[in-house]
Design a binder for these strands. Structure first.
Ligand SMILES: [Mn+2]
Ligand SMILES: [Mn+2]
Ligand SMILES: [Zn+2]
Ligand SMILES: [Zn+2]
Lengths: 148, 148
DNA sequence: TTACTAATCTGCAAGCGTTGTTGACTGGGA
DNA sequence: TCCCAGTCAACAACGCTTGCAGATTAGTAA
């Protein structure tokens, strides 16, 4: 995504207004690269601006997604995750225990499909998702197994 | 998944009862390879058994998933999709217009990651998802563009 | 066959993430 | 400074899925 200052310009160009609420969302997203959920963004913005509503956070996230400034990810963790890194094509690794998400770079060109895609199908995106358990959650699980 | 007859055995071995409702769900899943949603399974079962409840379909789908007889897929289409093919490792292609899902086989071994995964991370599954528009939905979209 | 009981059924309420609505408010161009 | 399109906060509603409870039933053992 662009910097909060640049986003101000781009919002105005689109006829969108730049409010303190939106600027606060810009700042949180610009510095948070952990693929936060809307709820997480809301909590972080609310620390500085306790009166903001979750609805406003959703609205701003949707606007940014429409403008291509952030990515809306559905990683099967229950809630959508938002990615401020749209510059570098990349994929994701997700912990099924705690929902932690990390970027993964893979060479998509090396991927070979064993058959042709359906006739006329237009691919918009090929996504690789690595699911598993992070070190922390794995230890927790083993501890749970031991006592059971 | 196993055949409806074999599933009867496996359910009983687990202390689960085999009811007409469950058998009807078994049969629908056994012959439907389109990755149906719970709602779709419900509709197809309801044709033969109009009194079955959606809740019972969900319960049976969950039991089958727990037993490893089917796969519960989250492809970002709004509702979960269920896959009766657990024998052959494969991936999926999904139309973002109509939700159509098709199997895709790819050589995962050919996939190269550009960096190591996080320390201690245990991968349970690496999934490839091809998103796009099917021939039908693409034509619909172009028609919409033309008249706008 | 019969009797018993744990498992299951249906219908409805509730949970969760997200979006719709509405009336009051305000950013920012003129 | 004015003015109004755009935005805000609060709350309701939506779509998918699960929780709950009382009535019913599958399947075992006698
Ligand atoms: Mn990312
Ligand atoms: Mn499949
Ligand atoms: Zn974890
Ligand atoms: Zn389609």
């Amino acid at each position: 995504m662009h910097s909060p200052e640049e986003l101000t310009q781009r919002f105005r160009e689109r006829g969108l207004k730049v409010t303190p609420q939106r600027q606060a969302v810009f700042r949180v997203l610009y510095q948070n690269h952990t693929h936060p959920s809307a709820e997480t963004v809301y909590e972080q913005v609310a620390e500085q601006m306790p009166t903001i509503s979750l609805r406003t956070v959703y609205q701003t996230l949707n606007d940014l997604t429409d403008m291509g400034e952030i990515l809306h990810l559905d990683l099967g963790t229950g809630s959508a995750r938002f990615d401020s890194n749209v510059e570098d094509a990349h994929h994701h690794l997700v912990c099924e225990g705690c929902g932690m998400v990390r970027d993964v770079e893979a060479d998509l060109d090396s991927l070979k499909f064993n058959e042709a895609l359906p006739t006329g199908f237009r691919v918009s995106e090929t996504e690789i998702l690595v699911r598993g358990l992070c070190e922390h959650c794995l230890a927790k699980d083993q501890h749970r197994m031991a006592e059971a």
